[in-house]
Amino acid sequence: MEYIMIIIVLFIVMLLYFKIADKYNIIDKPNHRSAHTQITLRGGGIIFPVAFIIFGLFNPSLVIEEYWSFGLGLLAICTISFIDDIRTLSNKIRLSVHLISVILLLYFTGAFALMPFWVWPILFVVIIGTLNAYNFMDGINGMTGIYSLVTLGSLAYINREIIQFTDHDFIYYPILACFVFLFFNFRKKAKCFAGDVGSMGIGFWVIGLITLLIMRTGEYKYILLLAIYGMEVVLTIIERIFLKENIFEAHRRHLYQLFANEEKVSHLVISSVYAIVQLFINIFLIHSHFPIWAIVLIVFIPAGGVYLGLKLSLKKKYSL
C-alpha cells in the first residue's frame, strides 16, 4: 500500500512539474547534434531527488542517522544540475558542487575510513567520470530510465538474496521513480526528458549504491553493473582523442546515436537492447565466482568486439 501511495504522489509531482516547465518554458530544443526532432519539456528527472525527499519523510530517523550525507550530496548535485538545465553555468561552479557531492557520497559509503588516503583521488576521478558518463548516455527516449531500472533491480536482488548492504526502501524508492519517469519518457514522442537533473540525480543514486556495496563486500566486480555505459563512453572518448576532437563538446559518435540518427532505429528499441545486454551481464556477474580480471575479460572481449564491429560498419556505411 505504501508503494502504491508513493507512485501516486510521484505521478502528481510530475504532472505539477509539467505545468511549471510549460509556464516557464523549460524545454529542450533539438539541434544538429540531437537525436530528437521535437521540442520537449526538460527536467523531468526532478522526480529522483523528490523520491529521496519522500524517502526521508517516511524514514526520518534513518535519514538523520545514516543517509543525511548522501541526501545532501544528491540534493546539491540535483540543484546545480537543474539550474544548469535552465541556464548554462560555468564549469568551475558545476565541478565545485560535484566535488562536494562526491565527498559527501564517499563519507556516506565509509570509503574515507575503509580506503587508504592515496586511493581517494582515484575514487573522485572514477565517480565524477561515471557521473558524466551517465550524462553523456542520456540522449534518447528511455535510455536513462530503463538502464537505471535494470541496475537498480539487480542491486535490489543482491540486497535481498545475497547480502543486505542497505535498507531495502533505499533501493525501492528510485525504482518506483524510474517507473513513473518511464511512463512519460518511454514513448515514441516523449512527454519529457530527464535533463541534467535527472541523469545526474539517478546516476548519483546508482553510483552511491554500487560504491556502498563494494565497500561492504570488498568485491570490485560490482562496478560492472554499469559495464555497458562504461565501455561505450571509454571507447568513444578514445576514438575522439584519436580523431583530435574536443572530448568535452557535444557530439554524435556514440553507437546509440549512430543507430538513432543514421539508421533511424526506434529509440525505444535501442534503449531496450542496451538494458537487456546489461541485464545479462548482471546475471552472470552476480552468480559468478571468477576473479574480477577473468570477469572483465569475459564481459569486455565479446561486448567490445561486437561494439567496435557495429560502429565500424556504420561509420563505413555513412562515411563518418
Results as ranks from 00 to 15, higher is better:
Phe55Lys: 14
Leu41Val: 02
Gly203Arg: 01
Val150Leu: 04
Asp85Ile: 00
Ile163Trp: 00
Thr151Ser: 15
Lys221Ser: 12
Thr151Cys: 13
Asp167Trp: 08
Pro302Thr: 00
Met200Val: 04
Ala177Val: 05
Glu263Phe: 01
Phe204Met: 08
Ser90Tyr: 03
Tyr274Ala: 10
Glu66Val: 01
Ser272Trp: 12
Phe58Asn: 08
Asn185Arg: 08
Asn141Glu: 14
Ile39His: 10
Ile283Asp: 13
Asn59Trp: 00
Ile210Gln: 03
Pro116Phe: 04
Phe108Asn: 08
Ala303Cys: 15
Ala156Trp: 09
Met5His: 14
Leu57Pro: 05
Met137Glu: 13
Asn132Phe: 00
Val234Ser: 13
Glu232Leu: 06
Ala35Leu: 12
Gly43Trp: 00
Ile175Leu: 14
Gly153Ala: 07
Gly230Pro: 11
Ser199Gly: 09
Ile202Lys: 01
Ala133Tyr: 13
Arg253Gln: 10
Phe108Pro: 05
Gly153Val: 06
Tyr172Gly: 00
Ile171Arg: 03
Tyr318Met: 03
Met143Arg: 06
Asp167Gln: 08
Ser288Phe: 03
Thr130Met: 11
Ile103Trp: 02
Leu15Arg: 14
Glu232Gln: 09
Asn159Met: 06
Val269Met: 11
Ser61Ile: 12
Asp84Glu: 05
Tyr3Trp: 01
Ile281Glu: 02
Val102Leu: 04
Asp138Cys: 11
Leu268Val: 09
Leu224Cys: 14
His32Ala: 09
Phe82Ala: 01
His287Tyr: 15
Phe55Ile: 12
Ile128Tyr: 01
Gly230Lys: 15
Tyr222Arg: 13
Ile77Ser: 06
Leu41Lys: 13
Glu232Lys: 08
Arg160Asn: 15
Glu66Arg: 15
Ala21Cys: 07
Ile283His: 12
Ala194Trp: 08
Ile83His: 02
Phe70Gln: 12
Leu10Pro: 07
Phe179Val: 10
Glu65Ile: 14
Phe52Asp: 08
Tyr274Thr: 08
Arg160Gln: 15
Ala275Tyr: 04
Ser101Leu: 02
His289Gln: 14
Phe117Asp: 09
Phe108Ile: 05
Phe186Arg: 04
Met5Asp: 12
Phe108Asp: 01
Tyr318Cys: 06
Tyr318Gln: 07
Thr40Gly: 12
Phe117Lys: 14
